[in-house]
Amino acid sequence: MKLSANHAVLVGLPTDVDRATAQVLRAHGTRVTSSRSHADAPLRPAPDLFVIGSTEARPAAAFLDTDPQTWWADVEGRLSALFARVRAAGRDLVAGGGGRIVLVLDARGLAGAAGATADATVGAAAIALTKSLARELGPAHVAVNAAAVSGPPEAGFAEPTPHEIAETIAFLADPRLPSLTGQTLPCTGGTIRTRA
């Protein structure tokens, strides 16, 4: 059984995680196309792995002080972009006979955070999307999982490096794990220990 994907497409990841993930996957023999470096490269061979980001750094904003239209436009815009990316990936993978999707989402979607209601809302929606897609695409041999990043810093816990996040993404992308689907794995150095 192959140890790693044939062709991975990275979309919408933070720059440092994108770079580290490409490095880790390439070390496993995977061809990597990143939307950050070659957006128009032809996708040959057909991708069997999509790593899709949905995190975007936003300044802290108290919910009651946030302009409703701004909040709504932000959440809707980010979720619409995620929807489009995930739908395109799912269609490609189903057409290609299977593969894996790894979402990289905001860990505040699990635990919430003061001043980050938009980030937490988008993160939680991405978790729900992960779960439902895993159920919906499982019969088509597409596994869907998520790495939850950007947890709250806490004394005594080391924040994971981009390379460690990339290693977690590569684990969730491992084609030898068909039974691993629908799971969200907090990659926050242990500060979040709940299960989505």
Binding site: A134, T161, E167, T168, R176, L180, I192
Partner: peptide, 24 residues
């Protein structure tokens, strides 16, 4: 076994997690 070995390797710096390869 692959999952346990990944967690033992420490490559992802994961701790306090429940990783569940459970066939859905």
């Amino acid at each position: 076994a692959l999952t346990a070995a990944f967690l033992l390797s420490g490559r992802g710096a994961l701790t306090g997690q429940v990783v569940s390869p459970n066939a859905g």
